[in-house]
Every structure is written in structure tokens, then in C-alpha cells.
Design a protein around this nucleic acid. Structure first.
Lengths: 157, 157
DNA sequence: GTCATTGCAAATGGTTTGCATTGTA
DNA sequence: TACAATGCAAACCATTTGCAATGAC
């Protein structure tokens, strides 16, 4: 589906929920579509949006992003300690972030099936496809024996 | 093991790493031991600490908590959007938080075994026992058909 | 005695909010 | 026209930091 078409579809989705379509929302959605699979932070998103659409205030981007999130159109992901980054909903996935080098690995939502089943069976808890971040160490850092801020054996001074 | 004894053990653990044992650290650890299984936020922790030990500054609590975290003695957990809460390391567990009513359900680290295996097998990624928060809806809210900030059908107005 | 730790006050940084104005439906 | 959305500046709040004084080893 061409990008312009997808944009219209998303805008219709908004209207259908009684959410008004404005320049800011159109622009933010357009940028998110452009970004494809990448995750964009608020500042970056604001910058990109302004390249095409004048003076859209950062606070507006915040409010826009929140509106889109409530409409289920985008997802917020907090990778490690970085500020929240956004991406269109759709292919739900999660991230594993290396605490030593910061590398991130993506994994599909299906990898949580087992956990989901356990949560439902035991607690009746229905897990959302909300973004999840797992911390740990990537292949390279494990191989190297590198250890992040965690537990380094006695090093005195 | 009596609480005082456990405190000493933890303090020794600190000394063994070359971390100095101070009033603030003793006090914070004592409170965390007292809190048992509960998670405590920074402000609350500072308040409790001050009940026994005078004028310990909030920034000191922050620094103390960070030092203890680096030593692997405590864990930080961010439940939903609340500020970070702390608890002693040990019985690693995770939380599922209901996005409608805020109820939290605890689940054991073992519930992540399957995910862990997948991450290792496919990416060589070694997941930490770091705290994880899963969002979703609890049994009651699922039953009631309540829906949090998520997707409420067209409401125009 | 040395150097980590603390108290304090000030800075930071991401995010939110009140209000008058603008623009969508 | 009515009311949601925006721009802007100010407020917020958790967390961090610089520095001189203090205290652990």
C-alpha cells in the first residue's frame, strides 16, 4: 500500500474515533510512516515534523503522540534509560538491550506466548502487546566476558 | 536468619567490594530489610530512613540506592509510570500491571525461562534477572469488559 | 591522612499544564 | 458556531551534580 494511502487510512481511523485531523497529526503520522520500522524520540520527531510543517510546538508533538497512542495507532517504547521512542503500531515486537554496549536486539511478540499463557492460566491476566524491554548482555559482550554496571568482583579503591 | 544478622551480612558484602559502610547505607539497608517483600519508592524510603537516622538527605538516598544497586544488593523496579521503587535482590520476580485499575500481579522469574531460551538460542542474548513489567488487564477488568486508556470505540460526542 | 561519602542548593531534562488563540467538523 | 487542538511560557517532578565539609578506613 502506498504511503499516502496508508496515511489516509490512519487519518480515517482517527476521524472514526471522533478525533480531529489537524496539520500536526497529519505531519506526525507522515513522519512515522516514513520512519518505517525505526523508533523515533520526541525531539527527533518534532525536528522532522518541522522540516515539512512549520512551527509545530514540541508540546503539540507530545499531545499528538498521546492522542495517537490512545487511538492505538502508535506505540511507545522505552529502551533502557533513554527517553521514550515511538513507532507505528502493527508489527508488535520487543527489545533486548545489552547493558554493556547498548546494542539492541529485536524479538517478535510471539516469543512471549509462553509467558502470556502462564499469566492467563494462573492469574487471569491478559497481557497487552505493549512494548517490553529486556535487559541483559549481547552475544559479543557475553563472549568477551565484559560486564556492565552489574557485579564486578571486589576491586577496592 | 534474624534481621540484624542479615543486615551485617549485607554490610560485609559491601565492605568486601571496597564500598564504605556509612550511616546512610546502614539505614537504607535496614529499612529495605524491614520492608520485606514490599517495594519502596525513594521518597518513602527517605522518610522511613529519617525516622531512625536524622537528616539523611534525599540526594544521599539516591546515591546510596545507586551504590547498592551496583553492588547487586537491591533491584530497581519501574511499575507502570510510577517513579522507580526498590527492593532487596534475592527472590527475583516481575510484575504484571493492569492498565485499567492499576492492580499488580507478581510472577516468578522462572516464567521467563522460555523467553530466555529463545533469546539465547537465536541471538546469544543472556537476559538479566532484571525486573520486568508487563502491561495488560487483570482478571476483574477483563471480566467486566473494562478498557483502560486503550481503544474505546467511536465516542464522537 | 586520604579519599569516598554526604549535605545542600542549584541545575537538569523530560514531560505536563493553563490559558488565550486558532481551526476542524 | 462549538468545542477540540495549538502555541507559548511557565510549572512540575524525578533525578543528578558541583562543591565544600565530614567521616570511614
Amino acid at each position: 500500500m502506498p504511503s499516502a494511502r496508508r496515511l489516509d487510512a490512519l487519518l480515517d481511523q482517527l476521524r472514526a474515533r471522533g478525533v480531529r485531523v489537524t496539520a500536526a497529526r497529519r505531519a506526525v503520522l507522515a513522519e512515522l510512516l516514513d520512519a518505517g520500522h525505526d523508533h523515533i524520540g520526541i525531539e527527533e520527531l518534532a525536528t522532522r515534523v518541522r522540516r515539512r510543517t512549520p512551527a509545530i510546538h514540541l508540546s503539540t508533538v507530545y499531545r499528538t503522540v498521546e492522542a495517537l497512542r490512545e487511538s492505538g495507532i502508535l506505540r511507545a517504547a522505552r529502551l533502557g534509560d533513554q527517553p521514550v521512542a515511538y513507532h507505528l503500531a502493527g508489527d508488535t515486537h520487543h527489545h533486548a538491550v545489552c547493558r554493556s554496549c547498548g546494542t539492541t536486539v529485536e524479538f517478535p511478540d510471539a516469543d512471549l506466548d509462553d509467558l502470556r499463557r502462564r499469566l492467563v492460566d494462573r492469574h487471569g491476566f491478559a497481557a497487552d502487546p505493549e512494548h517490553l524491554t529486556v535487559s541483559g548482555r549481547c552475544r559479543r559482550c557475553v563472549g568477551r566476558g565484559v560486564d556492565g554496571s552489574g557485579s564486578a568482583a571486589g576491586h577496592h579503591r
